[in-house]
Simulated assay, not measured.
Amino acid sequence: MTSTYRAVLLTRKGGPEALELRELPLEPPGPGQVRVRVRATGVGFTDIIMRRGYYPYAPRFPFTPGYEVVGDVDAIGPGVTGLRVGQRVAALTVHGGCAEFMTRGAEEFIPVPDGLDDAEVTALILNYVTAYQMIHRVARVQRGTRALVTGAGGGVSTALLQLLRVAGAEVFGVDSPPKSEAIRAQGARFIDYKERPFDQTVRELVPEGVDVAFDGIGGGNITLCARAVRKGGQVVSYGFTSAVGRDGSSDNLGTFLGMASLFVGTRLRGRRSAFYGITQLYREDPKPFREDLPRLFELLAERKVEPLIAHRLPLLSGRAGQELLERGGVRGKIVLLRAVPEPS
């Protein structure tokens, strides 16, 4: 057995050059821990925010990025039950996935059924659980609910479109014209935000307003969502990407104004509001995640959801993945995979 392994380390705040490939000692798992040989991890916007030095759940530098992991149990520490060597598992890790091996507490890992694609499972862990929990645990969507999704061509938004369709909702997706066909393909009605303010289009289509709006952009979108939602309806926010500069820096004022608009402005209009963050919820209580991810495995096996994979890159290509994401235009999830050969 090898005594070392390779991992991508984020060594400091900065650009992609702050990501370095290192060789590290391979340690045995401690009591209650499991060591996993990583099959796949994802690349997401949060990884870029961490690299720029703004994310409340990031550890101190240096650390390995990789928010979600699929892997095989490689070694089991004393006292661990319920898992076996060779078993495929998944975990919401927040960091640590962009490496050949990782070690965490056994309670973090959830068995993955046979027959599911590693890249698609990776997309479920963060994007689809986020969407599923907002739909079913926050908004409590019922069949016939009219739902609005902004930035509808993004990763979490695509998951929202698919899972809202599964839930029997009538869905309206807001984005730019190049993403119109992809949004329609998910069964949603496309709304072009560049043509005019999208709340005006929504009110023409649904004069009384939709029941719920899901927004990950923030800024002026919160006000438009509140105008598009009926009185007594709900606006659910899951991020303020508009308050992050092009260089990844945080606009604290923009975030504050976004929160004020969500929790004050929306409620003054007679609408309910909520902010959802998967990591905060998971840290407070991991039980919902452990319940919801297996449900998504079932939907994936039945092909009721089909994650869009934008790029499949070699496992240690964390820098290349982040550079792709920063250039923009990515439709779907970037996944780093052990089974993809390194370029020669």
Rank of each mutant, 00 (worst) to 15 (best):
K179E: 12
T130I: 15
D192R: 07
F61W: 04
T93L: 12
P111H: 05
T93Q: 09
C98P: 05
R246F: 13
Y282A: 12
L10K: 09
T158Y: 10
G209W: 10
A243I: 09
V212I: 15
E306M: 02
R246P: 13
K194G: 10
D285M: 05
L296P: 05
T158P: 02
T122A: 11
A339L: 07
L315Y: 07
G328Q: 11
R283L: 10
S317E: 13
K13F: 05
R12Q: 07
A119M: 14
P207V: 05
S261N: 11
Q322K: 06
E204N: 02
R165L: 04
I222S: 14
G144I: 03
E23T: 14
V80M: 11
A40I: 02
D211V: 02
Q200C: 05
V244W: 14
V330M: 12
G258C: 07
A18W: 06
V73H: 01
L300G: 01
Y193R: 15
A159Q: 09
F275S: 12
V202M: 12
G15K: 02
K179L: 13
G154M: 07
E108V: 09
Q234S: 11
A159D: 06
T158A: 10
D114R: 04
L161Y: 08
D285T: 08
M1N: 00
L308G: 03
E120G: 06
E204K: 05
R88D: 04
G321Q: 06
H95F: 14
L148Y: 08
G82D: 14
A169N: 09
V264F: 11
Q186N: 10
A274S: 15
V141A: 13
S249W: 06
E17Y: 01
Q322T: 07
E326P: 05
R196W: 01
R246L: 13
Q133V: 07
G53L: 10
T103R: 02
Y282N: 13
G220H: 15
D215K: 15
V8Y: 02
I49H: 15
R295M: 01
R35Y: 00
R290L: 00
A228N: 08
E326G: 02
A18M: 05
G209V: 11
S176Q: 15
P178H: 13
A147M: 05
Q322S: 08
S3V: 10
K179C: 10
R84Y: 07
P56N: 03
